[in-house]
Design a protein around this nucleic acid. Structure first.
Lengths: 186, 186
DNA sequence: GGCTCCATGTAAGGAGTTACATGATTCA
DNA sequence: TGAATCATGTAACTCCTTACATGGAGCC
């Protein structure tokens, strides 16, 4: 089971019976999730989950739009439970970070451009931080404790990156005019 | 251009001329990169980059294994420069974190299991942290300043997650025996 | 009547994964 | 001589993305 599949079942279990449209919108609105959950991925995914007996799809007779209400089967509930309780090593690893990736190669730039690049990274991180702060304020006043907590986690990691970027800035500045260094390994 | 493509060109620019095998191994050894860079992805990718004129592939006549040495063309260098200097908003966003994803749904578990799940998350994060610390020690003594710095960034974010998980632990414990709560949105 | 939202889907294409397949070199 | 490492590649499969396509419901 992929992360996205597990996440969809869990969402239906939590907010349950709901439409595929609701699932899609939930992912789109969450600052804490990466998935766009585009129509082209969500509908086939739900079909897969129904085929595997993890969720059920009930057509509402009253709704002429053809809305299908999704709910979780007993096997689905068990799958969610397993997903939450199983903590394989890889989920503990540091997540992929496009900014961290770029820092590997900062030395390919000359001194001025290098400083500009780091400045851009700091600014875009600050913008994300501001956005998440606004969202948290909204979640707090709405009493969405868990969502607020999740966003707090995202914020903590952004803040850690921002602090680290300060150090990056200092270190790559000290390195002088920008010679091309070649470490032995990535 | 995808992140992986840009990253491969940048790696060849930094460490280059080198073989596709070297590129693959570099990704595999780096705790800071997510990509497995499997053979099935790296060789087609390099063919693409050659076709686009971003890298060059020179067969070494002496090597009977057919090793091809890759180097970056002027357009390739420019592409790397653009990639490093352009900082679109999305790179500043909080990265996908499978642990943060799971926290959204902790309330689906009963009190005991919930505590067990959080404990697992904390332990797997601690293991990652220990591994990255060992790696940093090695990088420091090898004088790999930049690699060390990158790993320090990864460590800072892991530490932030660990601190946050303590708070998660306290909050979900206080919530009692495990009623299923239904927030309005993910 | 027209705009926005709710709601479902398909089709083409891109990119990555796993597994398979091959062969040279190096070193114990 | 056998195992590990260097080195390249293909094939089948899975999944996600973008773009397209359709239609009802509610509101001004």
């Amino acid at each position: 089971m992929t992360e996205l599949e597990a996440c969809v079942i869990a969402l239906i279990a939590r907010d349950g019976p709901c439409t595929a449209y609701y699932v899609r919108m939930s992912f789109e609105q969450s600052a804490a999730s990466t998935w766009r959950a585009s129509t082209g991925s969500i509908y086939p995914l739900i079909r897969r989950l129904v085929a595997r007996g993890l969720i059920r799809s009930r057509q509402d007779g009253d709704d002429k739009r053809g809305a299908k209400h999704l709910s979780v089967t007993p096997s689905g509930h068990e799958a969610v439970r397993d997903w939450l309780l199983d903590t394989p090593d890889w989920i503990g690893d540091a997540s992929a970070d496009p900014i961290r990736t770029r820092v590997h190669f900062l030395m390919l730039l000359g001194g001025d451009e290098r400083a500009r690049a780091v400045k851009g990274m700091i600014e875009t991180t600050q913008r994300s931080l501001a956005a998440i702060n606004a969202k948290m304020q909204h979640l707090k006043s709405a009493g969405e404790t868990i969502e607020w907590l999740v966003h707090k986690g995202a914020r903590a990691m952004l803040q850690a990156r921002l602090d680290w970027l300060d150090e990056v800035s200092a270190i790559v500045r000290d390195d002088g005019a920008g010679g091309l260094r070649r470490p032995a390994a990535l």
